[in-house]
Design a protein around this nucleic acid. Structure first.
Length: 316
DNA sequence: CGGTTTTGACCTGCGC
DNA sequence: GCGCAGGTCAAAACCG
């Protein structure tokens, strides 16, 4: 877009020297005096404006630096909090610890914790048939997906392209929102289960935990079906592929809201499929163009650039 | 009518 | 052994 054509940088000084010479002498002298006075006033105003502008620019720069420092502090504190909560959870029972870690960290850490736990137990005691379920849990591929939805949307529906049958719902102790249990119903023998619960920190985030691997191809939802998957509005979304990526944590924003730096890192760091990357790039572009604060920041940046150009022009 | 959802009951593991 | 919490079952209700 050609902004320079839209921006009128000229000052209307009501000053036309050519006309002065057309006046008779007595009028010319009077006009000269007036114009000298006018030019002096305008110059003063201009100087004051320039001073104000440089003051505001300096203040803007200072605020920017403060904001950057605050963001850095925030990130550091957040990391410390995560580290602290992870350490605290280690005092819980193994099962509760797995739950807690699944809630708080990425699945890479979860898998590590489960395996470590399993090894330490097998080395400390003999074989026990009661441990078989846990061994199955160790073998089971667990992945977690965070989906940002509208906070007003109370349904625990995760549109991932698979067909699920809900078999239970529970209110857990540490989260007031209920947890829903689903089994994959596309294939009767498919062992995959998922748990869906709203995040306790952010009610707009739905956390889906997948256990196991699908033993069938990805299901394309049927139209006009009551299935959960059929309510998927974006059929071209590669989320189904993303979910089948075992051992990963994926954060999706379905509300067109701006992603936090943490969430963006999450996506950048873990999602590598080309179609997913393209999907996220498109979503990010869409999000940015619809974000008023981004527009405001862009406008500020552009106007700042123009002010710089004007300053340079005036120096010529 | 077949599949899904709801929901109370039951099972299981764990800590005390 | 008891209580608690998470997970699962299964009958009834619901829906297209």
């Amino acid at each position: 877009m050609e902004f320079t054509s839209l921006l009128n940088t000229s000052l209307d000084l009501n000053y036309n020297p050519q006309r002065i010479f057309d006046e008779p002498d007595f009028r010319k002298q009077e006009a000269d005096r007036r114009n000298h006075h006018h030019i002096a006033t305008v110059s003063e105003e201009r100087g004051a404006l320039m001073e104000e502008l440089s003051r505001v620019s300096a203040e803007n720069k200072k605020l920017k630096e403060e904001l950057t420092a605050t963001c850095e502090n925030y990130t550091e504190l957040k990391n410390q909090l995560i580290k602290y909560t992870t350490t605290n959870k280690n005092t819980q029972s193994p099962k509760r610890r797995i739950e807690a870690v699944i809630r708080n960290n990425s699945i890479d850490n979860v898998t590590d914790n489960i395996i470590t736990n399993g090894n330490s137990e097998s080395s400390s005691s003999e074989e026990d048939s009661s441990k078989k379920p846990r061994e199955e849990l160790i073998k089971a591929k667990i992945s977690r997906v965070q989906i940002r939805t509208e906070a007003s949307d109370t349904s625990l529906i995760v549109k991932d392209g698979y067909q699920w049958r809900k078999y239970g719902q529970k209110v857990t102790r540490d989260n007031p929102s209920p947890r829903a249990y689903f089994k994959c119903s596309f294939a009767p023998t498919c062992p995959v289960k998922k748990k869906v619960q709203r995040s306790i920190e952010d009610q707009s985030i739905v956390v889906a935990t997948y256990e196991g691997e699908h033993n069938h191809h990805h299901h394309q939802p049927q139209p006009a079906s009551k299935l959960e998957a059929s309510s998927t509005t974006n059929r071209s979304s590669p989320l189904g592929n993303a979910v089948s990526t075992a051992g990963s944590t994926i954060t999706l924003d379905l509300t067109k809201r701006k992603q936090s730096p943490e969430e963006s890192r999450n996506v950048r760091g873990r999602v590598e499929a080309p179609e997913l990357q393209q999907y996220f790039v498109e979503q990010m572009a869409s999000t940015l163009t619809k974000d008023p604060s981004f527009k405001a920041a862009l406008a500020a940046a552009i106007s700042g650039k123009f002010l710089q150009q004007n300053n340079q022009t005036e120096k010529w």
